[in-house]
């Protein structure tokens, strides 16, 4: 059974197939599937720590204040499009074209809790 430490993914740089940097892994989304908690998608963006802090209203207020929330380049990438078998070097498994389809809109906050 292959296992991987999800905590090691936090803040890692994600590289595309052509070694282009996409951003940093900001958050890992999981959902209940019956008894199991399964990883469904990864949030990849340019700021590593802010995702955690956004739980607080002031965090988001700060992001808004600095205009960081409507930043380009936040991706919500489904679990099967990233190879995480080596958590120190996560890799994107799809083309740049497909990737642009994962670009998050402004409604991305809705996923919380």
């Amino acid at each position: 059974m292959a296992t991987v430490n999800l905590d090691h993914l936090a803040g890692r740089r994600l590289l595309s197939e052509r070694d282009r940097s996409i951003g940093y892994i900001e958050e890992i989304i999981a959902e209940w599937d019956g008894e199991d908690l399964v990883v469904t998608e990864f949030h990849v963006g340019i700021f590593a720590a802010f995702e955690r802090l956004s739980a607080s209203t002031i965090g988001t207020a700060l992001l808004d204040f600095f205009g960081l929330r409507r930043r380009e380049g936040l991706y919500r990438i489904p679990w099967d499009k990233i190879d995480i078998s080596d958590p120190a070097r996560p890799r994107l498994l799809c083309s740049d074209q497909e990737l642009s389809g994962f670009k998050a809109g402004s409604q991305r906050r809705k996923t919380s809790r």
Partner: peptide, 28 residues
């Protein structure tokens, strides 16, 4: 201190355990 997932064939990774202790912290 750590969160372990199992990688499965053609199925999403499944959270199987949490880790505690100084080794897990050190690795982070």
């Amino acid at each position: 201190d750590g969160l372990v997932a199992e990688l499965r064939q053609a199925k999403p990774p499944r959270v199987i355990a949490v880790e505690l202790g100084s080794i897990a912290l050190g690795r982070r």
